[in-house]
């Protein structure tokens, strides 16, 4: 049984829920079992937001993640809150342009990506999240970058067609980062 539990966490407005939705739709297209659970509390109104995504080849039990295999942290409070919960052998993706701290664990794999800075440099400020998603898809053994076009096609509404290309651009930047 292969199950990947991914926790996205950051500020409201950073596209945390959209990032989760992207992976959930990717799983749907790949005919996996999928669950997507957003935080919906007062934290959504300006504080921290998070999103639990589970992809599995068997039915998903609890949609609530207590021990993520992957943590995507897009601000310092999120990293501090969840760094200890990541499963040994898991991965942590850190937006290093917003988070100065280093992860002090040696039983997890850590990726530092200056996603927010990269997005600014490319003029796609709101798509730092998708840069990290691109890097995650490329670097996680259970996930794959293939098929992102189809997901973008499905998720970006026709009225905002211009965003399709920009999302692909952000995903590709993330994929190629560090290579």
């Amino acid at each position: 049984m292969k199950t990947t539990q991914i926790l996205f966490a950051g500020f409201g407005g950073q596209g945390i829920l959209f990032s989760g939705k992207f992976l959930a739709y990717k799983g749907l297209i790949e005919e996996l079992q999928v669950s997507w659970l957003p935080s919906y509390g007062p934290e959504m109104r300006g504080g921290t937001a998070n999103c639990n995504v589970i992809l599995s080849d068997t039915p998903v039990g609890s949609p609530i993640i207590t021990t993520p295999d992957v943590l995507v942290a897009m601000n310092l409070p999120s990293l501090q809150k969840y760094v200890g919960t990541v499963a040994p052998g898991g991965q942590i993706y850190v937006d290093s342009s917003l988070i100065n701290a280093k992860v002090e664990r040696d039983d997890v794999q850590v990726f530092y990506i200056p996603a927010t800075q990269m997005a600014k440099d490319e003029g796609i400020v709101s798509l730092a999240n998708m840069i990290i998603v691109g890097h995650l898809l490329e670097n996680h053994s259970e996930l794959s970058f293939d098929g992102v076009n189809e997901v973008v096609e499905k998720l970006v509404p026709p009225k905002k067609a211009v965003l399709k290309e920009l999302n692909i651009k952000a995903l590709t930047l993330g994929k190629c980062y560090g290579k």
């Binding site: 669950s35 997507w36 659970l37 957003p38 998903v60 949609p63």
Partner: peptide
């Protein structure tokens, strides 16, 4: 409950 209401599944 709030969880089942808010979560997405296929």
């Amino acid at each position: 409950d709030g969880t089942i209401g808010q979560m997405m599944e296929p």
